[in-house]
Design a protein around this nucleic acid. Structure first.
Lengths: 323, 323
DNA sequence: TGATCCTGTCAATATTATGTTTAATATTTG
DNA sequence: CAAATATTAAACATAATATTGACAGGATCA
């Protein structure tokens, strides 16, 4: 019998995103887990403990009270979280009560995060920006982080840039940092080999990666194996990647393209190169300019992340696992 | 029996990112490694020692206590680190990476790494590529990893692409992964606030970031605070960044530019926008095309990484810290 | 509305683990 | 030779942890 490796509390805090004092408080108040102790009374958590705490945090992030989810077993927690994720798009929940508790907090955190991130960007302070964003990333559920921090942040950067108040360097710095954060998140989602694969890219002439990365992340969270090939890819390259990877779908991200007249024909070529049966999802800010073409090539236009995930999960339900 | 190469402590410190006194303290307190000694009692570390220290630092960075990871073997450490990296957030999925650790000579390791990396790139297997490269990164000193794996790898990718044997997607995939690895390395080097700052970028029209990232990494290893602003930056943006960040130097990376006739004039503009006293270092594959212009604007052309570091360290000796 | 509960946060304190500095000495290096 | 770097042992400084108790803002209920 090998001694299983036990972890100190700061490791657990890093893994779960919970603060150390909260972990202790939960133990004292609710008996969430019962870690062993070292000879000097330091807590030692097992992998199971870590897993349980992760699930509990997820449940709490979904709006459940900690006291109410503590008695549940791991499986029930898993189910609860999965259900909450599905429900989110169902009951509208646009402006009304539903779960106002965490939402208010979230509102506050996100607004603050965007503002102080912007301040660091203006100051060209990469270190500070990274600090602000990674704090927000642990503070918030991933979804909220992406939709309420990253997306609005870059919307504002774009606006400020167009009005001449921000320079390209500012945008570059922010992009580099966010890109690496998203990449790390993407990598940290382990997906089974047999999961259906989706190729994610942006068409030729489109350089903005962030939308594509967010799409890849969303797909991975929906259980797909995302293959990210980055920006500015010609149609035949996309077709090649899709075939080579035996992908089950293709995701395209379109940034704001004011005058890109080549895009429609490029989309036609993409359709031709991936074959007429391959599902194509198109999203991003510039999507409004290609609705017609999208319809012509039978691509699905997704107007936001929720719609995208919805499509992916529906698809997965029809064609569950390894083809 | 060949005498294995042994290293003094400052080399080990450079490679691992640990401070010399910490290495000594760990030896005294925890018996982490047991280096040989010279006739005069200086420590001499083997490559295995270095590797072990690297792994220990990684484990500590993951939140483990040094005292608790010391008794673990290298293989266990590797597993621990991999687990910690993958497990952040999502509790499902128990990944198992079967990786044995054969100990070869550096020559052999690098050649093998480049070849198998190339194989993954051709197969469009991002996960595999990442595995190969990160294994090489622990196995090798950082310098060797950069100069003998990353640089040759991209040289070969470039050659294969020009000959039509590789597609753009392959290059994109490799770039994305390597970029994120380099970024992580860059971030993991801690530099004091007061260290002299260097702005690193590539001029307008030049999109290849890797050279610039490597330059930033080298500068950070030489004790500079690198500010990386990415590819394709117009001269006035570069000037702005340099001023805003109060940088003490500017590093430019030039990729292979066959027919870029605008580059010389752009360099002139850059010189004008940063002022005539600012040291400018120019490096990269395309450097051969701009020697004349470089001389005209009094920029220092560095032909390889060693030369670059040399310059930076010399500069630092003259103008040591703050001010 | 006011009282009460839930829950995250923080403060004070004691202890331990760990990182950093110092001092004295010796060796290396330019 | 002077300056930089190593070694050792000890001291010092920080940061992390545990424990207890308190507090505040939102949620809930009477």
């Amino acid at each position: 019998m090998e001694t299983p490796i036990l972890h100190p509390i700061r490791y657990v805090a890093l893994q779960t995103g919970l603060k150390p004092y909260l972990i202790r408080t939960w133990e004292v108040r609710y008996d969430v887990v019962c870690p062993k102790r070292t000879g000097n009374n330091r807590r030692l958590y097992s992998d199971d403990d870590v897993k349980r705490l992760k699930l509990l945090k997820m449940a709490v992030d979904c709006g459940h009270a900690i006291s109410s989810v503590v008695p549940l077993g791991n499986q029930e927690l898993q189910a609860l979280v999965a259900q909450a994720r599905n429900d989110r798009q169902g009951p509208e929940a646009i402006g009304s009560t539903a779960s106002s508790g965490p939402r208010d907090m979230t509102q506050h955190v996100t607004a603050h995060a965007v503002e102080s991130a912007l301040a660091r960007i203006i100051q060209l302070d990469p270190h500070g920006l990274e600090g602000v964003l990674s704090e927000a990333a642990v503070e918030l559920p991933r979804q909220a982080f992406l939709q309420s921090v990253i997306v609005p942040l870059f919307a504002r950067i774009g606006a400020l840039w167009r009005s001449g108040e921000l320079k390209i360097v500012n945008e570059h710095m922010a992009s580099a940092i966010v890109r690496s954060m998203l990449w790390d998140m993407l990598r940290s989602i382990e997906i089974s080999e047999t999961a259906p694969r989706i190729v994610v890219a942006t068409p030729v002439g489109h350089w903005h990666e962030l939308g594509a990365l967010i799409a890849a992340l969303s797909a991975s969270e929906s259980g797909w194996r995302s293959l990210y090939f980055g920006p500015n890819l010609p149609s035949e390259e996309i077709g090649y990647a899709v075939k080579k990877c035996e992908a089950a779908a293709l995701g395209l991200s379109i940034g704001h393209c004011l005058k890109d007249s080549t895009l429609p024909s490029e989309l036609l070529r993409i359709r031709r190169s991936v074959g007429h049966r391959m599902p194509i999802y198109i999203g991003g800010e510039g999507v409004v300019f290609v609705r017609q073409t999208a319809a012509k090539i039978k691509a699905v236009v997704v107007d936001d992340l929720t719609a995208f995930r919805d499509q992916l999960e529906r698809f997965m339900r029809d064609v569950p696992d390894g083809s």
